[in-house]
């Protein structure tokens, strides 16, 4: 019996009788993190990192049965040990280590290796088999240090503020928005948020993450917003909601902004390359550090990464999962649906 296998409902551990990030309702689901493609409704019980419990409740409803565990804490299901380690993706994101009789797999969910002030840093975990994402698994994706990107954002905001213009920054509401907020220079001006961002800011603050003061952008008085920064989900671009900001410049923060074609299709004034996923060097170093000889590759540029790994001595294959990218490019409609704006 294998430790992990792919079933119609998702990645399954037969020994422990649980699924990891299933896309259909199951009895027991262990969840890597709160993004919509990983934490889906319909399961009877959920287990996730302590910091992700409240995020999961916002997504799955307050009746959902969700149990939290600490990073590094081990729980057992039918003789299979399950331990969660930080994935560095967003608040409460975890790699899930599944171990039985000395043999282990790590399911990393989404991850990045660069430090992020809003969540625990990615921790390499030794294992025999590693399940990796591949959202940005092409060597054209190499991130600049986030400090440089924040400096670009600040520069853009400052220039707009000098002209009494508002700066509307589109970023995924869960994770990316808070990471940006923690990185911008709040002395430039006031910061407003879209409702979906503000709700998650509260969750982050309660988890002890330091964020600058933000205000829910309720008023329709244009003058209020002159010189301010407004953080909103990408789906708001071009909507009537943003018209309240009068004269404004738009920008989007996403790993996809690395490529000119993507930047131009977004029809915003600026594109900042900032991702919560590992870039190509990040993926390779993470894979190396696990020491795993078998690699399963999910969502994104699966084929190139699988081929590269196989050519370089790993035993790799692609997994046909139903995870999607949570970066701005793809998921923005589901993001906006939740918000009664």
């Amino acid at each position: 019996m294998s430790l992990l296998e792919l079933r119609p409902s998702g990645l399954f551990c037969p020994g422990g009788d649980f699924y990891i990030d299933p896309w259909k309702g199951v009895d027991r689901a262990i969840i890597t993190h709160g993004h919509a493609d990983h934490a889906r409704v319909g399961s009877k019980s959920y287990l996730c990192c302590n910091d992700a419990v409240e995020i999961l409740h916002t997504r799955l409803g307050h009746q959902a049965s969700i149990q939290g565990v600490a990073y590094g804490e081990t729980v057992s299901f039918g003789g299979v040990n399950v331990t969660l380690y930080p994935a560095g993706h967003i608040l409460g994101s975890a790699q899930i280590k599944v171990e039985s009789r000395g043999y282990s797999w790590v399911v990393s969910g989404d991850y990045k290796v660069e430090p992020d002030a809003t969540c625990a840093a990615f921790q390499p975990v030794r294992c025999n088999g590693f399940v990796t994402e591949a959202t940005f698994a092409l060597p054209i994706y190499r991130w600049r240090p986030s400090g440089e990107v924040f400096a670009q954002v600040n520069e853009w905001w400052r220039a707009n503020a000098a002209e009494k213009r508002a700066s509307v920054l589109y970023a995924y509401s869960l994770g990316k928005a808070q990471r940006l907020l923690s990185g911008v220079d709040a002395d430039i001006g006031p910061i407003y948020t879209h409702g979906s961002v503000e709700r998650l800011n509260e969750v982050y603050r309660r988890a002890g993450v330091a964020l600058p003061k933000t205000t829910y952008a309720l008023t329709a008085d244009i003058a209020t917003y002159a010189g301010s920064l407004i953080v909103a989900p990408p789906g708001m671009n071009g909507s009537s909601w943003v018209r309240r900001f009068g004269d404004f410049s738009t920008a989007i923060a996403s790993g996809w902004m690395q490529v000119r074609g993507h930047r131009r299709r977004r029809a915003v004034d600026r594109g900042f390359t900032l991702s919560d996923h590992a870039d190509w060097p990040g993926l390779l170093s993470a894979i190396r550090e696990t020491g795993a000889e078998t690699i399963w590759v999910t969502h994104g540029s699966i084929d190139p990464l699988v081929r590269w790994l196989n050519e370089n001595g790993w035993d790799a294959k692609g997994l046909d999962t139903q995870f999607t990218s949570d970066e701005a490019d793809q998921n923005e409609t589901s993001e906006t649906e939740q918000v009664p704006e």
């Binding site: 060597p139 054209i140 190499r142 540029s301 084929d303």
Partner: peptide, 22 residues
């Protein structure tokens, strides 16, 4: 390898940009 450059080029759609990013 050359095949990986081609994958990148497929995704970017412009050789000058692909080379600049790589």
């Amino acid at each position: 390898p050359a095949w990986l450059l081609e994958e990148c080029y497929e995704s970017v759609g412009d050789l000058a940009e692909t080379a600049a990013l790589l």
